[in-house]
Design a protein around this nucleic acid. Structure first.
Lengths: 357, 357
DNA sequence: CTGAAAGCGCTTACAG
DNA sequence: CTGAAAGCGCTTACAG
């Protein structure tokens, strides 16, 4: 492994010049630069990142922390952010919280981040006030995705508006008994997103003269299994809704799984709508409020790069990306004859000829 | 930011002792260790990773390179590997190839990996002989997932056996015209997996006395869109199959999307089976050959840790994890009356009451 | 068991 | 534009 001195010797210059030439700094004659470049190429020289980092004071990597990479939204975010970060020569350190509370606390307050990253993307990561203070002390550029924080950059959708749009779509179809499979406040994926979505749902209801009912709201969480359990709970309560607004597409998919197991038809018996436009929503025919996850990931990364490379200190900005209602096949007008209170039969589960239709 | 000298001064010892105590090395009196520990805690001392790495010679992070994090299998792998890596105090550097060929070549041959990682997980990454040589030159412990490489560790399923099991399931149901939506050789996700799966498909056919037909094999790729296109191509060829074995669940899902658009019923008109047991396969009722992706990710990470921390030089091993047929609702006996050659009608697309059933 | 000192391989003022 | 030298903050033989 060639080191910087080897290159310097071969090129007949000092290590300082090698360092400058290789990093494309000004103040190097083209001629000198060429000599250095070809010497480096000849030796297959690659600078040691830890040495550069120690001497230069920057780690060259940015941290991306997500609740769970396996969820569509976060995988998409990571994918998109990684591309722009990598293109700018940064490494990406992935922090996948995966519900490990202790690990999360340790990450924010311990040695997990210190001197390890130059900047941070925080996607829907629930944080306490102490967490925020600890993160601020790091003194790094930070962008939160799916939320907002004074002093940091942010990119998010208008969660209330998205939820309103979803609910209004249901109302416009004629639904009156509209349930909500909400995110869970005690859930590791929560952050503020679930609160806003629930608020939007209630706003739409009230605006239409409908009374939000406690019996129609279930804390399901942002996962398929959560959605499945939440839907089952809803059906167990009796007097089922004619439509369900799920906190996200994965929740909606879980709900569909349950409806199917109960032999209920979508949308004939119950309409379902989500938020996201998950890659598989088209396969399932799921009606949803789409959010541009790829653009969000790219934006977050770009904002960080700007803060990192910008000559002047950039003021962190908050950007709200647009959402868009995508009507597919899981929503339709309500049944004329309401479902019996004991909805569906277990034996209906095998009757696939009726599903989702 | 406190440095090691600050801790040394406060504890009244040398920096060497601080270093040893903090890393839990032997040869430190419990008493001394305690003094150091509390001094470090009092100062909120955290060692600079780049300094440790430069001095100690190891980067403290392991690289995980995947074709694309957004795919279920890779997201699951990354999630699982990250957990065990993080638990052992390692950082994980994510390399998401995302079809960027140039970036991939640069990663293997350039400065992307050099001195940046202590070990490497390569998941279904297609490599040339030169890539392998370059990676070998890195001198790191490497584990490949979904493949095998002399000198490196590996974890994979028996792809041929899995493909055989899927095809045999279809044959056992009475199918004779069985198509295959294969991975694509020119695809960035390919590696050797697609070759083995296609081979297994043909083996099962031959074993049952069926003749593999070129017209029944389409290179679709391991993605939803690829599966959708592949299925459309298959239908366009006329004389449609009664069953389709897709290279993976996402391919199968894409195929189902197309079938639905054509108004064809699953499994009544055409049966569909995949490989994976994707999180959403249960939602779709997709029959599949399940592979334990979480276990694979954990295993790969553990094998690396063993190589990293093992006192003796560990011999790289190859582990094959088991697969398991999961019969759900997208496979059934073939139609008694074959489909017309011009399969399906465009207008059938909206008739959801028949789908998938 | 503990310490003094060299060294890891770069980058960055500071001179020139 | 280029170089000599200090310094980044640790770890690791080497002594003791």
């Amino acid at each position: 492994m060639a080191k910087i001195d080897d290159v310097a010797r071969l090129a007949g210059v000092s290590t300082a010049t090698v360092s400058r030439a290789l990093r494309g700094l000004p103040m190097v004659t083209p001629k000198t630069r060429d000599r250095v470049l070809s010497a480096a190429a000849e030796l297959g020289y690659v600078a040691s990142p830890s040495a550069s980092r120690l001497a230069g004071g920057r780690s060259g990597s940015v941290g991306v922390v997500v609740p769970r990479v396996t969820r569509w939204y976060f995988a998409t975010l990571v994918d998109a952010a990684e591309e722009v970060l990598r293109a700018s020569g940064h490494d990406v350190l992935l922090f996948n919280l995966a519900g490990r509370q202790a690990a999360t606390r340790r990450l924010f307050h311990g040695s997990g981040l210190h001197k390890r990253v130059d900047a941070l993307i925080l996607a829907c990561v629930p944080r306490t006030a102490e967490d925020d203070a600890a993160l601020d002390r790091l003194g790094l550029p930070i962008v939160v995705v799916g939320g907002r924080q004074p002093g940091w950059g942010s990119v998010c959708i208008d969660d209330q508006a998205a939820a309103r749009a979803a609910t209004e779509h249901l109302i416009a179809l004629g639904h009156r008994r509209i349930a909500h499979l909400a995110g869970d406040a005690h859930d590791e994926f929560a952050s503020n997103v679930h609160i806003d979505r629930t608020a939007g749902y209630r706003q739409a209801l009230c605006a239409a003269g409908l009374q939000p009912e406690e019996a129609l709201e279930v804390e399901a969480g942002f996962t398929i299994d959560g959605g499945a359990r939440g839907m089952a709970e809803l059906l167990r309560r009796g007097d089922p809704p004619t439509a369900v607004f799920a906190a996200c597409d994965e929740t909606a998919m879980g709900a569909m799984r349950t409806l199917r197991e109960y032999g209920l038809r979508v949308p004939t018996d119950i309409s379902v709508i989500g938020i996201d436009d998950h890659e598989l929503s088209a396969v399932l025919g799921l009606t949803t409020v789409a959010q541009p996850a790829v653009a969000e990931g790219r934006l977050a990364a770009s904002m960080l790069l700007e803060a990192l490379t910008g000559s002047a200190k950039v003021h962190p900005i908050d950007v709200v990306v647009p959402t868009r209602l995508v009507v597919r096949e899981t929503t339709g007008p309500p049944r004329l004859i309401p479902l019996p209170r004991a909805a569906g039969g277990e034996d209906g589960a095998r009757d696939l000829s009726r599903w989702p239709g």
